[in-house]
Amino acid sequence: MPLARPARLLRWFFSPFYGQERSYWRAVTACFLAASTFWLLNALGKTYTTRITYPVAWRYNESRYVPVHPLPTEVPVNVTGRGWKLLRRQLQLDLKPAELTVTDLPATRFVTARMLRPALQQSMDGLQLNYLLTDTLWVAFDELISRRLPLALSPAASGAALPYAAQFEPASVVFRGPAGKVRSLPSPYLVHLPQAPAGSTAGDIRVPIGGPELVTTNVQDVRVRLVPRQVIRVPVQVVPELLDAPPGRRYQLTPATVRVQLEFFPEDTAAFRPEQVRVQLHYGQFTNSDSSLQPFLAQKPAQARGFLVLTPGVRAKEVK
């Protein structure tokens, strides 16, 4: 039989262990543990060359600048060292990160291997740095600024005005973060109601402020008191502008005008002029099966509290 010889070998190997007492097995286990310990100690005492990732810590003026993307926390390197040192790195035991000081902000966009090497060599206790496995660490910083913005109530999701006047407490909020993001925030900053208030609107509600990533506020939410207000709807007929059409061709639009409904508070209607409204059509962006173009409101007066584009589509026919 092809398996007879391997079976005899296994019986010969395990036969000394049959019928032994518990004290015998304890002795065998102790021998195996001692041998494994001596082997491990011997292996950790040898010198190895391998690839590891070494932690880095960034030093910069945190009161004036902020990273707009997460900074690298480790850098891949090739090192030589004893097994004990490599094991300590793997277990993160008493490990000193390499400190990288970044100056000339926010112009600095990268840190080269030439800049990384001295910091790594200084922090690697017991490890020899052979070379870096990356040439460049990319960074992005922006100036840290603060900006105080007044608050206003945002229109409904459909663009329609809410028939409320809002009183905010506090009336303004300080936003702090990267200059590019903070400066792009609108003034006034729009506060969105979590849901349409039901029943009486004379009560107070708490509304979270929110904000873009990396931007913090001096308050997490504001107290909003809603007071019912009259909203006046003003219809406007606007001649749309056709964009992105092939050059040298003429098109006839049907209908020739687009109906737009603007919503104002009573005191804002006096300053309204129809020429303040612009509607655009983007050639090729068809909205339904009849190949009509969806009109978009491109410009509206600043005092408008809401708007609705009532014309669902406009057909563009080439004129020969």
Rank of each mutant, 00 (worst) to 15 (best):
V314K: 02
N78T: 13
S158P: 03
P170L: 09
K85F: 06
P212Y: 10
A27P: 05
Y283M: 09
A298S: 13
P246D: 06
Y54C: 04
L193G: 03
T217S: 15
T49V: 09
A43T: 12
R278G: 02
D268K: 02
P188V: 01
V277S: 05
N78S: 14
P235C: 07
L162G: 00
F14M: 12
K96I: 10
Q20H: 09
P72T: 01
N61H: 09
Q230H: 06
L153E: 00
A202W: 07
Q294C: 10
L129Y: 00
T53R: 13
D104Q: 13
V79L: 11
V207I: 10
G203H: 12
G284C: 09
R109P: 01
L41A: 10
S200K: 08
A98N: 04
H192A: 13
A161W: 00
N42I: 02
R22G: 11
F307H: 10
L120Y: 00
P235N: 09
A140L: 05
T80R: 14
P240K: 03
F264L: 03
R278P: 01
E62Y: 06
T80E: 13
R59Y: 03
G45Q: 10
F13T: 13
P212N: 12
P76A: 08
G313Q: 07
A30W: 05
T29A: 15
